[in-house]
Design a protein around this nucleic acid. Structure first.
Length: 612
DNA sequence: ATTGGTTTTAAAGAGCCCTC
DNA sequence: GAGGGCTCTTTAAAACCAAT
């Protein structure tokens, strides 16, 4: 269980109007008593190996990068700032630590700080880290969010400057009384705990960008304070919609140069959330400083339109790329995938896991997160009564034979309101093609875990009699049997075998879920049953997965009623070469030229191909 | 190859409007 | 006035990226 992290939204709002996240940190004092426990703790960490330290960091929700010294340093900092030093606090009752706050805005790690240092140096290190962070936030904005190389020599001046700023910040009064403050923190942690990692990451990422902007915008007087009113929203949207985009480490993005419409939406959502908390603190804002008016609404809509247009105008635009249309597998590609899994992968566990997850996805249409989060207890044998025969009036017998299959039950992870959803079922029957059979793939996987390699035997706390043992171990395991595989891990596994096929879709773990619905429809399965299999609600599947080209309608509009096969006799008439060359004579040359120059504009190439 | 962080895409939910 | 269906909003998963 991860240690709770304070919701960044609330973190911002626990500050008074002129304070920034960095400033507020200064009010935290490291109790001396804790530091004295440091030494002994530090020695303990020294004895641990790199991997063990990493694991500790992960448990405490700290960053896990860096060398041993950095990891030790991080853990020590966490000890200082956690209520109970050296003990990983779990549960929602523990107040958030300063380290957690720092983490929420991604501090760069401090290199080369040895673990055996005096109390003063630890304090200095801590302050340096805070300073460095506020510094980098300012730097990010000044240089269009490019990463900043810290010159060692220059730091002292800037440090002094920011330190002075921090000192001023402490003079701002804090109005919370401690009891209400604790209650709010408790509630915030509780709220945050129900969010998933990805959601938290998204929010933090958006907030980080916003906070960086706010820091500079306050300095330059663009906005008077942190209250999100209509002008604030317009100013920030203006910045967000036109800013340069950079990769994680500061290189300019080549794939896109503007935020997408959905990212802008996300920004508005986040601003709205912060604003609501601001209104909680000061209800008079609702009338004094309204956040929305017709202009903010219209401006936002105009930006969305611009973002959509911008996408269509970008140079490398290919109309099918990244959509459902470029990841519909053809039957021969299914065969190639199966072949690649069984013959091209080199590690036996990978083959077994890949074979199971691919066939299971083909049989259940599960998303990858559903596959990796499936625990051992959630799968059961089940005899499915199958209809046996059809009555004369067309009714089908419901008392037929029973066929053996595997049933899996779980809660869907991707729900907007966790807890509101019913558990869902997936069911897989043995496939008519043994190589595509998910049930036998599962049998092989379990045989490998329990018998052949006895992987379970290596799990120290494995208890056959304890249900939690079965509940905490996953069918698709990660590096070891007792470690779950992450969604990204599955994605990489898929990449490794798809490299050997002609599948070039970027949607690796979603292939089966994208292709099987149309296959099922072609095989005559009613639409509602297709929806039920993939757990799609309403018209989601039609809208997202297969509606873009309604095939039956397209064929019917070409003059062929449903049921009649599509055949256009006149298209078979051979066209003389001489005539072909007379049409668009520039085409071949232009295409060859583009290809020779490694043209990346797929749209242009596709158009020339159309002319041919 | 891993990994942590960022951006894009999938898809669920809220609520409005229209029809019967 | 119930409920279906549609649009808009919101949230989570998937993909991407580059340092290590």
């Amino acid at each position: 269980m991860n240690e709770p992290v304070i919701d960044p939204v609330l973190l911002c709002l626990s500050m008074t109007s002129h304070q920034t996240a960095q400033n507020s940190l200064n009010s935290e004092v490291i109790p001396e008593a804790r530091i004295t426990t440091q030494k002994t703790q530090s020695n303990n960490y020294d004895k641990l190996q790199h991997a063990a330290l990493k694991k500790l960091c992960r448990e405490r929700n700290l960053k896990v990068g860096g060398n041993k010294a950095e990891l030790t340093q991080r853990l020590l900092l966490d000890d200082q700032t956690s209520p109970v030093p050296g003990v990983s606090t779990s549960g929602i009752f523990s107040p958030p630590s300063v380290q957690n706050r720092l983490d929420s805005t991604a501090i760069p790690a401090i290199p080369n700080i040895s673990s055996s240092q005096s109390d003063e140096t630890l304090n200095v290190a801590f302050v340096t880290e805070v300073l460095r962070e506020s510094e980098s936030l300012v730097g990010y904005f000044d240089q269009g969010l490019e990463s900043v190389d810290h010159e060692e020599g220059e730091e002292s001046d800037e440090e002094a400057e920011v330190a002075a700023e921090l000192a001023n910040a402490t003079e701002l009064e804090v109005v919370d009384n401690s009891t209400t403050h604790a209650a709010i923190i408790w509630a915030d942690n509780f709220i945050l705990e129900t969010r998933r990692k990805g959601g938290r990451q998204t929010e933090m990422s958006v907030l980080k960008q916003w906070k960086a902007w706010v820091t500079t915008a306050l300095d330059t007087g663009i906005i008077p304070d942190m209250i999100i009113d209509s002008i604030h929203i317009i100013e920030y949207l203006k910045y967000a919609a036109t800013r340069n985009l950079f990769t994680t480490h500061g290189a300019k993005k080549t794939s896109t140069s503007r935020l997408s419409a959905s990212s802008l939406k996300k920004i508005m959502t986040m601003l709205g959330r912060v604003r609501r908390r601001q209104e909680d603190t000061d209800p008079s804002l609702i009338t004094k400083r309204p956040a929305k008016n017709s202009r903010t609404d219209d401006f936002f809509k105009a930006l969305m339109v611009q973002a959509q247009r911008y996408r269509l105008e970008s140079a490398d635009f290919d109309i099918t790329q990244g959509t459902i249309l470029d990841s519909q597998l053809r039957p021969e590609q299914f065969d190639k995938i199966t072949e690649a899994i069984l013959t091209k992968l080199t590690q036996l566990p990978s083959i077994i896991k890949a074979h199971f997850s691919w066939t299971w996805q083909c049989a259940t249409l599960n998303r990858s997160d559903e596959v990796v989060s499936m625990t051992l207890v959630s799968i059961h044998p089940y005899n499915l009564p199958l209809p046996n025969y059809t009555y004369q009036d067309g009714r089908i017998s419901a008392t037929g034979r029973e066929v053996f299959g595997v049933l899996a039950m779980f809660h869907e992870t991707k729900t907007a309101q966790p807890g509101k959803t019913e558990p869902v079922y997936s069911f897989a029957l043995p496939h008519r093609d043994p190589l595509m059979c998910s049930v036998s793939a599962l049998a092989i996987l379990l045989h490998f875990m329990f018998d052949q390699k006895d992987l379970i035997g290596r799990v120290s706390n494995w208890n056959w009699m304890d249900s939690t043992t079965w509940q905490t171990h996953h069918v698709v395991f990660g590096k070891n049997v007792n470690e779950p595989m992450g969604g990204d891990g599955l994605g990489r596994m898929y990449s490794s075998f798809l490299d050997f096929t002609t599948v070039n879709s970027t949607k690796k773990t979603h292939l089966a879920r994208r292709t099987m619905p149309s296959k099922l429809e072609e095989m005559g399965v009613p639409a509602d049953q297709v929806d039920a299999t993939g757990h799609w609600q309403g018209n989601t599947r039609r809208e997202v997965y297969s509606s873009k080209i309604p095939k039956a309608a397209a064929v019917a509009l070409a003059g062929f009623p449903v049921g009649e096969s599509y055949y256009v006799p006149w298209s078979q008439v051979p066209v003389p070469d001489a005539l072909q060359l007379k049409l668009y004579p520039f085409c071949e040359d232009a295409l060859a030229l583009l290809r020779a120059h490694g043209c990346k504009n797929q749209g242009m190439i596709n158009f020339l191909i159309l002319l041919l």
